[in-house]
Write a protein that binds this DNA or RNA. Structure first.
Lengths: 114, 114
DNA sequence: AGTATTAATAAGAATATACTTATATACTGA
DNA sequence: TCAGTATATAAGTATATTCTTATTAATACT
């Protein structure tokens, strides 16, 4: 694990990405559990392209990474991001969002690939 | 000092404000030292209205507070902000910007009201 | 009072952002 | 190979953001 401290411009770019409630929730959620695109669509009641575009921004910036598993693509926090510590310090301070995943689970809408 | 943890929406709003490099630098600087508007204008090579508008956003959100001292208005980090801890945790992780104030000082451009 | 200085506000323009709908791509399983 | 599902991309639109210039407000100094 690396502990690069971001310069001002880098920090501002990361914070701008996190400064959208959908993306902030996504990052918080993937920091707690892997999650796939269609789950986010359900969670946030947004269209699939809208979610996909948020994920792309996060991926392009190196905040999240993806793994395909069958027909699903799962997103997780990118553990190799040079600014992982910075990102974690920020998201540690907001409330856990796992309750949202539990709601999905209760509706039988969680995706499982085992 | 209060330790209210921001909910997701509140956190996103704060992060959006910090997600602009000018505002992030302003907040970092006022966390280290009081500073007046014309100093920011010099520091960032921006017009006075542009700086004023950034300060207004930060003030409206409660992140900074102002005190008039003579003809100058000094800004500082708002120590009574309910989310002070959150804000401080974020800005502690970016590099100190006092070198910028030292450059101003070297040019004899710092404002002093004593 | 009159002028200079500092800062805020207003109005408008250029750009960025976050959606929408339509379409393309990639994988799965019959 | 074909149909179904999951995801990405493209193009367009509405709105938000961040500047610009012009003006106003407040204070200081003579």
């Amino acid at each position: 694990m690396q502990i690069t401290s971001p310069d001002l411009d880098t920090a501002a770019n990361i914070l701008k990405l996190l400064g959208d409630k959908t993306r902030l929730a996504i990052v918080k959620i993937v920091s707690e559990q892997e999650c796939c695109v269609c789950e986010f669509v359900d969670l946030f009641q947004m269209t699939q392209p809208a979610i996909s575009q948020h994920l792309r921004k996060l991926k392009d910036a190196g905040l999240v990474s993806e793994t395909r598993r069958g027909q699903w693509i799962f997103y997780s926090l990118n553990k190799t991001c040079p600014y992982l510590t910075f990102i974690q310090t920020v998201i540690e301070q907001i409330p856990s969002q796992t309750f949202k995943l539990e709601e999905l689970e209760a509706q039988g809408k969680r995706i499982c690939c085992d």
